[in-house]
């Protein structure tokens, strides 16, 4: 489900085909290995828990993929998750629905600021989102004075934190539905065309009369909203809003997942399905190490190897 500006030529070599599908091959291989070697991997609870953890990462990866598609980047998503969770905790007196809305709204605000700086003022996305990474985390910590706030049990937060249909958590269903929506937007709408066009050649897109600024603003606003929702999910799962913990380093996982999934940093190409599988691959990888009682740090090293490997394959693909 990879969408590029160029039409597929149809005479890809087998090697190129393997390259394009490498994330799915790697995921399948990892699952097979786990089913054979990892004790307890077949357990329903394990899979459910994996999907719980994956849901927020999928959300931030979607926004990240859009940003990378325009040849940008959004480093602020992890801190935005923390800020959204903090704002949600502050809005709890107004009821859980209002609190969730406030959290997502906080994400929108960060996204709008980021998008405004990038679109209207031409600031390098790396730097504007880096500044927001630092500032949003600081705001989150300042809002809650650095301490953890428990969420009420029952109702909406239980539905998000532990609710599941058999092995599939509600949050995973929501995340996958949104992934489908984003994939639809990228593939079939003018907005998606614009995103890819800007990523492929921003100057040409401007000359062609594409509304570059509005598109960029929308992209980063969307990334902020998705990060806000991801923060709400993560806090609901944790049962608490923890400004020092929620979303830390998620931006790195999101970038890694997007790149492994076949969204190149050079822009102009987005693979939503690949990104989702990139997230699942990284999550299963981490879980495999934990379940085999291997120091989790090794998983981090292997993650690095995966990223370099994926990038190397993409490079060879041209």
């Amino acid at each position: 489900m990879s969408t590029g500006l160029m039409a597929r030529t149809g005479h890809d070599s087998p090697m190129a085909l393997l390259r394009a599908q490498s994330v799915y091959v790697a995921f399948a291989a990892l699952i097979v290995i786990d089913l054979i070697f990892t004790p307890g991997f077949r357990n329903v609870f394990v899979i459910r828990n994996l999907l719980f953890e994956a849901a927020p990462v999928i959300l931030v990866t979607l926004g990240q993929s859009l940003a990378i598609g325009t040849r940008g980047i959004d480093l602020s998503v992890g801190s935005t998750m923390g800020l959204a969770a903090a704002v949600m905790a502050l809005a709890l007196p107004g009821g859980s629905w209002l609190a969730v809305a406030a959290g997502v709204g906080a994400g929108l605000v960060v996204g709008m600021i980021n998008g405004g700086l990038i679109a209207a003022l031409d600031i390098n996305p790396l730097i504007s989102s880096l500044a927001l990474l630092v500032a949003a985390r600081g705001t989150a910590e300042a809002l809650l004075d650095g301490s953890r706030v428990s969420l009420p049990t029952g109702g909406l937060f239980d539905a998000l934190g532990i609710g599941a249909v058999w092995i599939v958590p509600t949050v995973a269903i929501i995340a996958l539905a949104i992934a489908g929506l984003v994939a639809f937007l990228v593939r079939t709408t003018m907005f998606g065309r614009y995103v890819l066009f800007i990523g492929a050649n921003k100057a040409a897109a401007m000359i062609a009369g594409i509304k570059v600024r509005r598109t960029l603003l929308l992209v980063y606003a969307a990334s902020g909203v998705l990060a806000g929702l991801a923060g709400v999910f993560a806090a609901a799962r944790l049962g608490a809003s923890d400004p020092n913990y929620i979303g830390v380093n998620y931006e790195l996982d999101a970038i890694a997942a997007a790149v492994i999934g076949g969204t190149p940093l050079s822009g102009g190409r987005i693979s939503i399905l690949g990104g989702v599988f990139g997230v699942l691959l990284l999550q299963v990888l981490g879980a495999s190490f934990i379940m085999n009682d291997i120091n989790f740090s090794y998983a981090q090293i292997l993650k690095a190897v995966f990223i370099v490997g994926a990038l190397y394959l993409q490079r060879a693909g041209g």
Partner: peptide, 10 residues
């Protein structure tokens, strides 16, 4: 970025 993750892991 990969080095960031890998080196911290090491």
């Amino acid at each position: 970025l990969a080095a960031l993750l890998g080196v911290r892991g090491i």
